[in-house]
Design a protein around this nucleic acid. Sequence first.
DNA 1: AACGCATTGTTATATTATAACATTATTATT
DNA 2: AATAATAATGTTATAATATAACAATGCGTT
Lengths: 133, 133
Amino acid sequence: MVQKQEYLSKNQKIVLDHVEKANQPLKAYSILYNVQKKGLKAPLQVYRALDKLVEIGKIHKIESRNAFVACKNSNCVVSNATAFSICESCEKVTEINNSKLSKYLSNFEDNSGMKYSKYNLEFFGLCKKCKNK
Amino acid sequence: MVQKQEYLSKNQKIVLDHVEKANQPLKAYSILYNVQKKGLKAPLQVYRALDKLVEIGKIHKIESRNAFVACKNSNCVVSNATAFSICESCEKVTEINNSKLSKYLSNFEDNSGMKYSKYNLEFFGLCKKCKNK
DNA sequence: AACGCATTGTTATATTATAACATTATTATT
DNA sequence: AATAATAATGTTATAATATAACAATGCGTT
Ligand SMILES: [Zn+2]
Ligand SMILES: [Zn+2]
Ligand SMILES: [Zn+2]
Ligand SMILES: [Zn+2]
């Protein structure tokens, strides 16, 4: 039996490190450009690292923006229940950590007969700063 | 004062008509291919029609799939509160019409000081059919 | 050593979406 | 009817996002 990976590979570390330092969502090609000095030369190297990091929950994809952000919830071991707030003016993105909301959505059922194992929620609006402009 | 548009243009009608008949999300380039016989020759013609149709709520974009689906909720006049269920096996997508859910999310507030004017929620799982395979 | 599997490296290509500019259509105002 | 404002169209080119395909390497297990 091969164990599940419990460490990060070289490229995965490089990409995660860069995304964590950003504190905001980054585009894949912006990541690529910035890690080229560390040896990652091709889009696929970045996308493969991102795929794995998303899979294990270290990084989330902001679908409406095609951008990637580091997870801020220590309890977010896998990316199966994510919620974000997005400012439509300055594009600031924050991961929402609200246990009521996550409970509500994780337990959500409708009459479709479908069992949901995952969700992604994106709220849009104006952040505090932009609202007061 | 110019009034808000209350009809659809030629290209908008063609695109909406095609998407409504599909009953499932369509990719922009698949739409393009299929409406070429009706005179829309370039991607921009399709994207512009889609943009407008999304804006007025006739069509929603499934962000995680980069696909477009016709609105099934008569009360969905604008695309500011959308929820979908997506089968990860057969890719069937259904627009969720659940007033409790939409109330809960429309009234959601957290301590970020942000006022949310819009949301998009995507649930993932296995549909009835795929679950029983 | 031999195997299985994840990761890497590399080149090419597919897919999704927009920029820029000229033109035409529609509606509102004078 | 002329003018102006707004929206839609047509067209070419290009930008931005993402994956296919294949060969090679690294690493833990047997
Ligand atoms: Zn998270
Ligand atoms: Zn803002
Ligand atoms: Zn709708
Ligand atoms: Zn299914």
